[in-house]
Design a protein around this nucleic acid. Structure first.
Lengths: 136, 136
DNA sequence: GCTATGTGTGTTATAACATAACACAAGCAG
DNA sequence: CTGCTTGTGTTATGTTATAACACACATAGC
């Protein structure tokens, strides 16, 4: 075990992660590509390869229902925390990450009773956030 | 309220639903298109339009993490049951649908406490199914 | 030193998934 | 008959993701 929790990021990984952090919300791979053209990015693979690693490190989450990516909301996230869930507002596009511990333990009960070995869980809630409701 | 639970399907909707039922597992829109070429299907939109309706009726589910579609596992499903969750085996591609009532009530607690109005929930578990483990 | 290996990179091309825009046909309400 | 809605067929295009190949750089082993 290393003494520091941070992964050493390559130049491209750091650029992609910074883009996502700065955005403060989800971005598609191609949106990231456009943001990084001035930094020498020319092709989608440069983005996808960096994203693969960042997701592997747990620093970035993939939103399956948006085909987009978002920086983990844990400050200076170095991965290692539990599963993440996302509440996605259909009106304003806002994404809230939270840790669905109770739901996960219920799902784990199911997988264990079925002999299913769980690798990774996707939980995404679509709806309308508080702000967009009161703004009616 | 109609006395029968079944939706009247158009010709295209019925063909697409039958393809998914026969397959007994997930299919991509383009896989369905190929299956239905002999029935006069020529373009992706014919498939996507039928799928949109079938999903709306609750007879077909979209698997976000696979970009694929699967017939609801409830016999003669006419929609109306609770949220669905899916356990997807990375080894054999098998998909098991189940009803995660306990997890849903936990997630609903979160949405209610946050003032988030929930429209639709995606829960997809990736891992290895019992068969593929014992087959080692 | 120099080779083998692993990882990251850059580039072109292509695959896979999804929708826009337009035209037409059939049913049904007024 | 007119207007409206829903479904359909078709062409073209947009969006998301990967394949295949070549090269650079670091480091471990001889």
């Amino acid at each position: 075990m290393s003494a520091h929790a941070h992964h050493e990021l390559t130049k491209n990984q750091a650029l992609v992660f910074q883009s996502l952090s700065d955005a403060g919300g989800p971005l598609t791979a191609y949106a990231i590509l456009d943001l990084l053209r001035d930094n020498g990015f020319r092709a989608p693979l440069q983005v996808y390869r960096a994203l693969d690693k960042l997701v592997e490190f747990g620093m970035v989450h993939r939103l399956e229902s948006l085909n987009a990516f978002v920086a983990c909301s844990h400050k200076d996230c170095a991965g290692g925390h539990g599963a993440a869930a996302f509440a996605i507002c259909e009106k304003c596009g806002d994404v809230r990450e939270f840790t669905p511990d109770e739901a996960m333990s219920s799902l784990k009960k199911w997988t264990e009773s079925e002999g299913f070995i769980l690798d990774r869980t996707t939980i995404e809630l679509r709806g309308t956030c508080k702000n967009c409701i009161t703004a009616n």
